[in-house]
């Protein structure tokens, strides 16, 4: 029976590794990264995947080998095994296991070093993504980010943008060391309101003022590797820089390039349906054209509502 059980353990572990190897080829894998920091996150993921993969194969391999080598029979006494000859493939291990203190020190220090490395490797990436102070450094002088206010509620994202005029004004603000004007983005009379749509421009940082009106939601852009909970009663800044666009001149998504904004934190019975979209425009002009279009629809009731509704 011992052979059977070691075989079972072995095959299961091979299957586990196999699934991880095969998954990317059948499309069950991460989506491509499309933001400045996304590939850094992915690299860290792969580093951990490789390290844990090696440890997995190593430990499971040793486990299966030991189960195979030392499968016993009920009549056999423990002492008999000790006297017996070791199977060939296990002999190198024997020296290791026979000197317990050295091996114990080794298997404590080696993982400790690796784990410490893994921990340290994360710090700068994490800081660049989330520390407010790092954002200030990342945004070049005179280059204001696209600012929007995302206010989550059950079960939609309500998004507010400065209108074209105010956007132009904000773009010209020169950066200074202290507080920037775009940090204060209070509701304004002429703001543009849209639902479930976040718009951005390629290679331009986006600063989202994230808040919620009812429960905790989570602002989650898989393609941008962005995830941040929205807390009631708190405004949390979120920023990222998309490095490729996914819409054409008219603001229509390119085929196969639908980038979604699903809520990641349980927010009630409609949690699954709380999905928005991210639209990354190729140029600032495209973005402004889109903004002007929405603004016109919203303000200046020139067109009869029925026609607007039908054409929307």
């Amino acid at each position: 029976m011992g052979k059977f059980w070691s075989f079972l353990f072995g095959i299961t572990m091979v299957a586990c590794v196999g699934l991880f190897v095969a998954a990317p080829f059948v499309g069950w894998w991460m989506v491509e990264p499309h933001s400045l920091h996304a590939s850094r996150v992915d690299n860290l993921f792969y580093i951990i995947l490789v390290v844990t993969g090696i440890f997995f194969i190593l430990t499971e391999g040793v486990l299966v080998a030991l189960m195979w080598a030392y499968r016993g029979t009920p009549d056999l006494k423990a002492g008999d095994i000790h006297k017996g000859e070791l199977p060939g493939f296990i002999r190198p291990l024997a020296n290791v296991f026979n000197t317990p203190h050295k091996i114990e020190i080794a298997w404590t220090l080696v993982p400790a070093a690796i784990l410490l490395y893994l921990g340290m490797a994360q710090i700068s990436t994490w800081a660049d993504i989330k520390y407010l102070s790092r954002m200030e450094k990342q945004i070049k002088d005179g280059e204001s980010p696209i600012v929007c206010d995302v206010s989550a509620r059950q079960f939609e994202w309500r998004v507010r943008y400065p209108n074209s005029a105010r956007l132009k004004e904000m773009q010209t603000i020169k950066a200074n060391a202290g507080k920037r004007d775009w940090e204060k983005f209070s509701p304004h009379y002429d703001d543009v309101h849209v639902v479930n749509e976040v718009h951005a421009v390629k290679n331009k940082p986006v600063l989202v003022h994230l808040s919620t009106r009812d429960v905790i939601h989570s602002f989650n852009l898989p393609h941008m590797r962005v995830k941040q909970d929205a807390l009631p009663g708190k405004m949390i800044p979120v920023w990222f820089t998309p490095i490729s666009s996914n819409v054409d001149k008219e603001g229509k998504e390119l085929p196969g390039k639908i980038w979604e904004l699903p809520c990641a934190e349980l927010c009630g019975w409609g949690h699954v349906r709380m999905v928005g979209r991210l639209y990354v425009h190729e140029t600032m002009d495209d973005y402004q054209a889109w903004l002007a279009g929405v603004e016109k629809q919203q303000r200046n009731g020139t067109s009869p509502p029925q026609a607007v509704a039908a054409n929307q």
Binding site: Q154, E156, V195, N196, P305
Partner: peptide, 21 residues
Amino acid sequence: GDLARTLRQGVEGTAMPSFNL
């Protein structure tokens, strides 16, 4: 058009969310 508008925009301040996707 009215019904479509409500579906797209939702009704802010109520539990009716937007279905504009």
